[in-house]
Design a protein around this nucleic acid. Structure first.
Lengths: 197, 197
DNA sequence: TCTATCATGTAACCAGTTACATGATTTT
DNA sequence: AAAATCATGTAACTGGTTACATGATAGA
């Protein structure tokens, strides 16, 4: 018997969450929603492309969380289909949000994968690469802080940026500490790479 | 003209990195590698299933990073194909690792998505949910620390677990701070949810 | 000896990305 | 008026997941 993963949502893509969250305010057609998401910088928090957006609308409709509201045509532009949230959709939004906030999920950041294989590189090279990473991280923090400083929204709408900053700073601290510890490990670690040219 | 994303590796799945990293020591067949990865707890760092493993072996072979080494049959078990790393594979491993260590990539954690939509929930409920999250995070930290404490490997082979701990602790601090700030925002935020039943 | 689990792999399905299509504006 | 970009959507492709298949041991 196979393991049955819990929380098998009909639509798993987080872009679907954003769609539900925006449609709760007013019905919209996919393209318009896409522009809104970009304008609000949601693309920093949720991965999406033009294509995935239409796909997710399709999935949500099939699952009954949204439904066609009207289909209108303006001038000779392609016909556009406006979707509205259903009651099931409203329920799903709440339920999904609750799960995401209350239950941290296991994630697989790229850096973790690299760390788990880190001995594949020579310690001296790792040290140099980590210093590059520190620079890049500092730039990231700068960008995020600029966004927070330059926005005129209520801070509630910037928490995700604050969260990013917190994690980036934690990573900076970790990398610094790692760099220090490499010193002590260097002999053994380097010996492991003897005769590699 | 469309944006051409840089670093278009022939194999993008991080499971491929693990395969290269293990095959650098000795040739292996997919199933064996799978057992090894599980035994070493790599499945905490890199997402993989039985199916994705065979897929990645196929991709790596097509890309020329690994090649059939021999195909043997033991008793009447299905024939198994042992793969070995090629020179191109060795180069790819190094190059990929360098990129992953030096360049932080933009990621999309689930919690960030939820935070960006957090106003969809009532502040009182958010507070309760965040307290649940704190409990869960504490458990996670405990697990990770137990792994570090209970392992007899060189600490170099536990850095990824240390990294996880660092990020978890940063998240705990962030959530605590968020909880405090909710107090001040509560009136406006709650008003936003007036008349919802 | 029947049942479960291991060992090994393939095939079918689904989700996500990229490319294509086409008329309407805007810019050069 | 040609070229670019916007607006809107569909179709084709590719990568990942899930389900299926099948003989070999091991446990009840």
């Amino acid at each position: 018997m196979e393991v049955v993963v819990a929380s098998q949502r009909k639509v798993g893509n987080l872009l679907g969450l954003a769609v539900l969250g925006y449609l709760v305010r007013e019905p919209m057609h996919p393209y318009e929603l896409g522009r809104l998401l970009k304008a609000h910088g949601e693309d920093r928090s949720i991965k999406f492309t033009h294509g995935s957006l239409y796909m997710v609308f399709g999935q949500l409709a099939k699952a009954g969380f949204i439904a066609e509201h009207e289909t209108s045509r303006e001038g000779q532009r392609p016909e556009r289909t406006v979707y509205a949230l259903t009651d099931a959709g409203r329920a799903e939004l709440k339920d999904w949000m609750r799960e995401l906030v209350a239950e941290p999920g296991h994630e697989y950041p790229r850096f973790v994968a690299a760390l788990s294989m880190i001995s594949a590189l020579h310690p001296d090279e790792v040290a140099a690469l980590l210093r590059d990473r520190l620079d890049a991280l500092a730039r990231r923090v700068g960008e995020a802080e600029a966004i927070v400083a330059g926005a005129d929204a209520h801070p509630l709408f910037l928490v995700e940026e604050e969260y990013r900053i917190a994690l980036l700073n934690a990573e900076v601290a970790f990398v610094r500490r790692f760099l220090e510890r490499i010193e002590g490990w260097r002999p053994q670690w380097a010996a492991f790479h003897e005769g590699e040219r």
